[in-house]
C-alpha cells in the first residue's frame, strides 16, 4: 500500500500498547461513544483499520482523531481489553510527530513548571510535541 506518512500499523500498536486482534467485533465501544455522530471513523473502525494497516486514512481524518474526547468510555466498555481510545491517541500522536516541528524544547520547560501541574502532564506533552 502506498503510504503518505510512512507510519506502520506496528508503530501505532506499539505506541498504543494494544493488540487489535483481541477485538471480537461486539461494537460496545461505538455504542458507548458520545462523539459518535461527529466522527467519520468510529472507535470500532479504528480497531479494524489499524488491524488492516489503513493508517493513512485515519491520520487524514481530522474529524475522527480530534473529535474523540478521550473520555475513555470505549475502554471502560470493551470486554476484551482492546482499548480503542489508546489507538486513537496513538494515531493523534503519529500526526503530531509528523508535523515535523519541535513544539516543546527542554528549555521551555522551566517556564512551564507549576506546582499544581502534574509532572505526568509535562512528560506526556513533551512526548507528544517533540519530534
Amino acid at each position: 500500500m502506498a503510504s503518505n506518512y510512512d507510519v506502520t500499523k506496528e508503530e501505532i500498536e506499539e505506541i498504543a500498547g494494544v493488540n487489535p486482534l483481541r477485538c471480537m467485533r461486539c461494537g460496545r465501544c461505538s455504542a458507548a461513544c458520545p462523539s459518535f455522530d461527529n466522527m467519520k471513523y468510529h472507535p470500532h473502525q479504528f480497531v479494524a483499520m489499524v488491524e488492516n494497516g489503513e493508517i493513512d486514512a485515519l491520520m487524514e481524518s481530522e474529524s475522527s482523531i480530534y473529535k474523540c474526547m478521550s473520555c475513555m468510555a470505549c475502554i471502560e466498555r470493551c470486554p476484551r481489553q482492546v482499548q480503542p481510545a489508546r489507538l486513537i491517541e496513538a494515531v493523534r500522536l503519529a500526526v503530531v510527530r509528523k508535523q515535523g516541528q519541535n513544539h516543546l524544547t527542554p528549555d521551555d520547560i522551566p517556564a512551564l513548571l507549576d506546582p499544581d501541574l502534574p509532572q505526568q502532564a509535562l512528560v506526556s506533552a513533551y512526548r507528544k510535541f517533540t519530534k
Binding site: G27, A73, R77
Partner: peptide, 13 residues
Amino acid sequence: QYGVHYIKGAVGK
C-alpha cells in the same frame, strides 16, 4: 415470522 429486530451491535448506555 415474528419480526424481532436483531441488531448486530451493542448497547453502550
